[in-house]
Amino acid sequence: MKVLVPVKRVIDANIKVRVKSDQSGVELNNVKMAMNPFCEIAVEEAIRLKEAGAAEEIVLVTAGIRQSQETLRSGLAMGADRGILIETDEALEPLAVAKLLKAVVEREEPGLVLLGKQAIDGDNNQTGQMLAGLLNWSIGSFVSKLETGDGSISVVREVDGGLEKVRLKSPAIVTVDLRLNEPRYASLPNIMKAKKKPIDMFTPEDLGVGVAPRVTVLKVVEPPARDAGVKVSSAAELVEKLRQEAKVI
């Protein structure tokens, strides 16, 4: 089985995000970028499938500016086999990404598409579902456990109120949640080897997909600063305030 893993380049999760002074977006200049943490979990799971003999090839794909190659390289260093960059300077919305991925799926014909449930920048949580809709494939979202069987994939989904076990018909789409695994860090020899792994380059035009944005961002602002809380000296005072001021009990 071939596994396709779409990955996204985002601001490193440990960096404090700042808004640009003209409020047109988030400051990306001189900011450390990294692979979206949920995408890393997807890459890790694909590698584990390969190590267990359930997958033969892992193909990474990303869409974005040329530097997104670095994100592909980090996944190749973890253990993926090759990469695909769909290069564009356009700000991509989830539907555009899903359409690009559909075109890649039709070329690559993977048995499984593993993606992060969402990216930590836009927090959209849409791409996997939209891709499933466009392809009319089965999907398991928010997955915390994955097992492959003959012609099917069993997953455990983290849903409100508990866990849901679902069997998906292959080929399928799985979006992964935080608890699925802990991604490995690449060894230095593997980082060196990853430099020689192939990355194919396309443009959205090559794939016949229009990616013009449909949404206009008017303004990006920082969330309002929170005022300091009130300290109470006793439980009795707390109850009194909850009753009289907050009127919640």
């Binding site: 450390k32 990294a34 860090y185 980082i191």
Partner: peptide, 13 residues
Amino acid sequence: PIPDPDDALILDS
């Protein structure tokens, strides 16, 4: 300082 891409992966690991 932010390292160049060649070093970035190594230092990240």
